[in-house]
Design a protein around this nucleic acid. Structure first.
Lengths: 191, 191
DNA sequence: CGATTCTTTGAAAACAGTCAATCTGTGTGG
DNA sequence: CCACACAGATTGACTGTTTTCAAAGAATCG
C-alpha cells in the first residue's frame, strides 16, 4: 500500500528511494469500507491523507440536511478537511469513503517536519497547494459565470475518472444543483 | 508608502526592522489612478502586489462581455492573478483600480528568494496561503449551499470595508448575480 | 427475490435573468 | 453657478430556469 505513495513521490516530487524511506516511518496505513468515515464533523482534522486506492468525499451538511460536497478524492489525490487541518479548529464537515478505499495518513506536524527536511518535497508541496488554489478559484469562476449545463460539461471533461465512479446525485451536490435538475440537464443533452 | 508594508510585516510576520530592510530593495512602488490597469488580460502576472492604499479588483470578462469579479483587495491585502503568477501562463483576466491606489510590487522570484532566506517570512506566507485557500473554499460552499440573500448578507458581514466602498453592481458580480437581482434582494430586506 | 439506493419524470411554485425605463447623485465644462 | 452628462441604482413586466414535492422506473446488492 505504501508502494502507491512511493511511486507517486518518485514520479511527482522526484524523490530518490532513500528519501522515500525517510517518509515511510511517518505514514499510517488505513483501510476504509464504503460509507465508513475518515473524519466526522466536529473532529479536528490532524492528518493529510493520500488515497492509494478508492474514492472519498469531503462534504458538509446544511441545516435542512442537504449535503454539499466540496471535494472528491481518488487515487493519487490527497484529502483532509483543510480548513480544520490549517487552523486546528473542529471540522465543519465530514469525510467518508464512496468505495472501499486504502489511504495513507500523515500527521500534520510530521508532514511539516518532512517538508522542512527535504527541499524537493517542499517545492512539490508548494506546487500542489498552488494548483489546489487555482482549481478552487476556477471552480468559483465556473459557478458564477457559467450555466448549470456548462458546469456539468466542464466537470465531466475535467474529472472523467471521478464522473465515472460517483453517483449522479453527488455530482449534482458538487455542482450546487438538485439531482432532479441534473437529471433534466442530462435528458436535454441527448436530443 | 513602503512604510505601510513595513508596518504590516512587523505586525503580521513579526519581522524586525533589519529584516524589513532586507525586503525593501526588492519592492517596486506604484501609484494607480482609478480605472487604471495593474494587469491586462493576456499578460503574465509576474508580481505579487501589496495594497498600501486604495482598492483593486481581479476579474475576467465572459464571451458576452459580462465581468466576473474573483477578488477585491484593499489596504493590507495582496493582489495578483495567482493562476498566471503560479504557472507563468498568460492571464485570463485583468486587475484594475477601483480607487486611486498605491501598491508595492514584488517580483515572484524575488519573493521566493526572500521567503527562502527568512523562516519567519516563510511561515507567514504559508499561513497567508492557507487562509486564502480556506476563504476560497468557503466562498464555494456559500455559493452552492446558500440562497442569494444569504450570500449577500455573508458578504457584508465578512467584508464590511469592501462593501462600503465598492459599487453594488460589482458586489453583484462577485456574488454571481445580476445587479437587478441584488437590487431586489436589498429592497426586500427593508421590509 | 426483496430491499435499498439511485435516477427519472411531471406539475406547480419560487427564483433569477432580461430588457426597457426611470430615478439619483456626482462631477465637469460652459 | 447651472446644465448636462454620466455612472450607479432601482422598478416593472416578462421570460426562462431551478426547486420542490410526489411518484414511478432502473439498477444494484445481499
Amino acid at each position: 500500500m505504501f508502494n502507491a505513495l512511493a511511486k507517486y513521490l518518485k514520479a511527482n516530487a522526484f524523490l530518490t528511494n532513500e528519501e522515500i524511506e525517510q517518509v515511510r516511518p511517518y505514514t499510517i496505513e488505513k483501510k476504509l469500507r464504503k460509507k465508513q468515515y475518515l473524519l466526522q464533523e466536529g473532529e479536528v482534522s490532524r492528518f493529510n491523507s493520500f488515497v492509494a486506492k478508492g474514492c472519498l468525499r469531503y462534504y458538509t451538511v446544511g441545516d435542512d440536511g442537504t449535503e454539499h460536497i466540496l471535494r472528491f478524492s481518488i487515487e493519487n489525490w490527497w484529502i483532509s478537511d483543510y480548513e480544520s487541518y490549517h487552523s486546528g479548529n473542529p471540522s465543519k464537515g465530514a469525510i467518508d469513503a464512496l468505495e472501499d478505499s486504502e489511504i495513507i495518513m500523515i500527521d500534520k506536524y510530521d508532514m511539516e517536519a518532512l517538508v522542512q527536511s527535504n527541499p524537493k518535497l517542499q517545492a512539490f508541496l508548494t506546487r500542489l497547494n498552488e494548483r489546489n488554489f487555482d482549481a478552487t478559484q476556477n471552480r468559483i469562476l465556473s459557478i458564477i459565470s457559467g450555466t448549470a449545463e456548462e458546469r456539468y460539461e466542464k466537470f465531466i471533461k475535467s474529472y472523467p475518472d471521478v464522473f465515472n465512479r460517483v453517483p449522479l446525485r453527488m455530482i449534482a451536490s458538487y455542482l450546487g444543483l438538485t439531482r432532479e435538475t441534473l437529471s433534466r440537464i442530462r435528458g436535454k443533452q441527448v436530443l
